[in-house]
Design a protein around this nucleic acid. Structure first.
Lengths: 240, 240
DNA sequence: TGACATTGGAGAGTATCACTATCCAATATT
DNA sequence: AATATTGGATAGTGATACTCTCCAATGTCA
C-alpha cells in the first residue's frame, strides 16, 4: 500500500498525509526504495483516528499528538498514562472543529490554557482550595482529586452560566449530575478488562469521542421533550 | 463609563474591545465627543457574553456573532429565531462554522457590516434520508425533524467511535439516551416562560454554555465511579 | 527502451483566526 | 500648560493547518 492508496482509503489528501508524516502524527511507512514506502492497516487506523480526534473530537493536531502518544506509550503504568492523558486533553470547552458533514474542513485549535485575561476577576488564587464545584461534588459524595483541573473548568463554566443569567442553581446541577452519573457508570462499565493499555485507550478515546455523541443526543432530546410537551402546551418552541 | 472602564470591568484589554467594536461583536457606545464614547452595563454584559461564548463555549468569533445576532433579533418570531439559532450554532463538537458566511474578515470597515444578518440560509440538501441515528431516535419515539443536521453530526460522531473501536453499540447508546433525556427534560423545564425572546435566549445560551458543564461533570463522574468501583476491584483506573 | 506518472522529501506559500501594535489628532484631566 | 486618554484607522503578529511547488529517483506500461 503506497501513499496514494492510504490517501484513498482514508479520504485524506496526499499532501496532508505527507504533512502528518512530517509532523509525526503518523508513523513512517517502511521505506522500500528511495521513492517508495509501504503503508499498512496500522496507518489507515492511525490516520482515521487522527481525523476522528480533530474533526469529531475537536482537538488540535498538537493535542491529538499528545493523546496518541499517551495511549501508545507502552512503558508507562496505567496510572501514569491516565495522568498524561488527562493533561493532554484539552479543556472541556476545548472542542471546536469542523462542523459540516460534507464540507468538513473546519479545524481549530483546542484552547489549552492560555494566559489570557480572565473574565470578571472573581478571586483566582492559584490552587483555590475550595470552590463551588468542589463543594458540590463533595456534597454529592463524589470522590475526585481536589487538585483536578476539571474542577476549575467546571467552576469557570458554571460561573459563565451564572453571568449569562441561565439560572443554573444547585438543584438543576443536582439533576444534571444524577443523569451524568448514569453516563459515567455506563462509561466505566464499557471499559475493557483485557489489558491496562486497552483500558486506557478506551477511556481516553471515550472521553474525546463520546462527548460529541452526548452533545448531539442532548440537542435531540431537547427537541423531543420540547415538542412533546408543546403538544399539550401549544407553544412553537424548538422547531428546526 | 469609557472604554478603559469597560476594559477593566470585564478584564478584556482595550485593544481587544476596540477590535470587537470593529467586528461588530459589541454595539458602539454613545459618541459624546470626537474622542469620547460612553458605554454602559449593556456593554459589560455583552462583552462578558462574548467571552463566555468563546472561552467557555468554544465558539469562534464568527459563530458568537451569529448567536448573538440571533438572540437579539427582535423582528423574528420565536420559531424563526430558533431556526436561525440552530443553524448559527456550531456543530456538537463545538464546531467552527464550516464555510459560507465567513467573508467578514475585512479590516476595511463597513463593507459588509451594514449588510447586517446573514440570516438567510440556503435550504438544506436532502442528504441521507435514513441513517443509523435516524433509526435510533425513531426507535426511541423521539420526535425530531428528520432533516436536522444534528442527526448527521450524531451519525458522524457515532461512526468515529465505531472506527476507533469503542464498542458503542445500540445498548450503550440507549443507556446514554436515557440519561440524556433526563438532561433534556431538565433543560426544557428551566426555560423561562416570561417571553419568547427570553426563552430563545435561554435555550441558545443553554446549548452553548451548559455543554461544558456537562462535559466536566462527566469526567468527574467517571472518576468517581471508577474510584468507587475499584475500591472493590483493585484496578488502578482513573487516578489523576 | 522510452514515455510518462508517482513517490518521498523538503521548503515555501496560503488562508484563517484572534488578536496587538502603532499612529494620529482631538479632546480630557490635572 | 502639561500630560493622558480616546476614537479611529491601518498594519503587523503568531499560531494553526494545511497546500503548493519543486526535485531527482523510481515505478509502470507500451
Amino acid at each position: 500500500m503506497q501513499i496514494s492508496d492510504l490517501s484513498e482509503a482514508t479520504g485524506v489528501p496526499v499532501p496532508t498525509v505527507k504533512y502528518y508524516l512530517r509532523e509525526r502524527l503518523l508513523h513512517p511507512g517502511v521505506t522500500v526504495s528511495r521513492t517508495r514506502a509501504r503503508y499498512d492497516a496500522s496507518h489507515v487506523e492511525r490516520l482515521t483516528l487522527v481525523r476522528a480526534l480533530t474533526e469529531v473530537g475537536g482537538l488540535s493536531l498538537a493535542a491529538a499528538r499528545r493523546v496518541l502518544a499517551a495511549i501508545e506509550e507502552p512503558d508507562l503504568s496505567p496510572v501514569d498514562v491516565m495522568a498524561v492523558a488527562q493533561r493532554s486533553l484539552p479543556g472541556v470547552a476545548g472542542a471546536r472543529p469542523a462542523a459540516g458533514t460534507s464540507t468538513t474542513t473546519g479545524a481549530y485549535a483546542g484552547r489549552d490554557h492560555e494566559a489570557g485575561h480572565d473574565l470578571a476577576p472573581p478571586c483566582d488564587a492559584p490552587g483555590a482550595p475550595d470552590s463551588r464545584s468542589r463543594r458540590f461534588v463533595a456534597g454529592r459524595g463524589w470522590q475526585v482529586h481536589p487538585g483536578d483541573p476539571v474542577l476549575d473548568e467546571l467552576d469557570a463554566a458554571w460561573e459563565a452560566c451564572d453571568r449569562a443569567g441561565l439560572g443554573l442553581d444547585e438543584e438543576r446541577m443536582t439533576r444534571y449530575a444524577d443523569a451524568v452519573e448514569q453516563i459515567g457508570r455506563t462509561d466505566v462499565e464499557s471499559v475493557p478488562q483485557t489489558s491496562p493499555q486497552a483500558a486506557v485507550r478506551h477511556v481516553v478515546l471515550g472521553t474525546v469521542l463520546v462527548d460529541p455523541v452526548l452533545a448531539a443526543l442532548r440537542r435531540l432530546a431537547q427537541q423531543h421533550v420540547a415538542v412533546s410537551s408543546s403538544a399539550s402546551a401549544r407553544s412553537g418552541m424548538l422547531a428546526p
